[in-house]
Amino acid sequence: MDSFILRAIVAGIGVAIVAGPLGCFIIWRRMAYFGDTLSHAALTGIAVGILFGVNATVGILGTGLVVGLLLLALQRQRAVPTDTLLGILSHGALALGLIVVSSMTTVRVDLMGYLFGDILAVTPNDLIWIYGGGAVVLAGLAFIWQPLIALTVHEDIAAAEGIRAPVIRMVFTALIALTVAIAMKIIGVLLVTALLIVPAATARRFAATPEKMAMGAVIVGIVSVVAGLSGSLAWDTPSGPSIVSAAVIAFALVTLAGGFAGTLKRP
């Protein structure tokens, strides 16, 4: 096996391990659209990174944090609901990013690679980002796990009983931004959210506790990454869409099997 394939698989597994538990929270907290917003903002981050000559991952992380904090601040007012705010931030960031990227005539940017992920572009340096950043995300998530569950089940109960909701929310937002930044290279801007939510949604069927669902999402994610990358190699398809297709097929199979089992059980 060529070393770049091995690198891609190792990178993909790293991303799946981080995306599983975080994706569960994104489903539980109904934040799928927030993931989209951050990944669209990532395009601006890439452009900013190139403009200032910094690593694309740092650029993505920076814009992700800015957009996340902006959203938390804007949510304090009540006139404009959150989904509308997300729409404004998401499309605003995407538009800005596309303008900046297309206006950079001196630098050639592989737009397709950033939008859909590029298996060939994974460098040893990316691996360090994925596993280093991934370790930070998982450690952070483990640290806020129980308070975040409490906050997710009922905001007022959690706040009334001593959980510092604004701090926990801010940490969680930062963790999502970091995850989007490290998942970008493998999966691409447009499909990051899918890797977060599809394996988690698949795992819901088997799980009786939040922790089991998170573990299940990791396993489904790893299977999807390996299957998707294998397909990508065999049929020369882009890596991000291949991984997401594999994840969606897994979800469809589990859902169909569940529906079939339900039919058998019915009297």
């Binding site: 489903i27 539980w28 907290r29 109904r30 569950i149 409490a150 997710t152 089940v153 009922h154 007022d156 109960i157 959690a158 009983e161 001593g162 959980i163 949604a201 819901r204 799980a207 009786a208 506790t209 939040p210 089991k212 669902m213």
Partner: peptide, 21 residues
């Protein structure tokens, strides 16, 4: 609280709800 519903996507046994905070 007066209103209490848990998102159906979150698997939560009663003993976990009891030890929430």
């Amino acid at each position: 609280p007066q209103r209490f519903t848990v998102n159906a996507a979150l698997p939560l046994p009663v003993h976990r709800l009891l030890t929430l905070t």
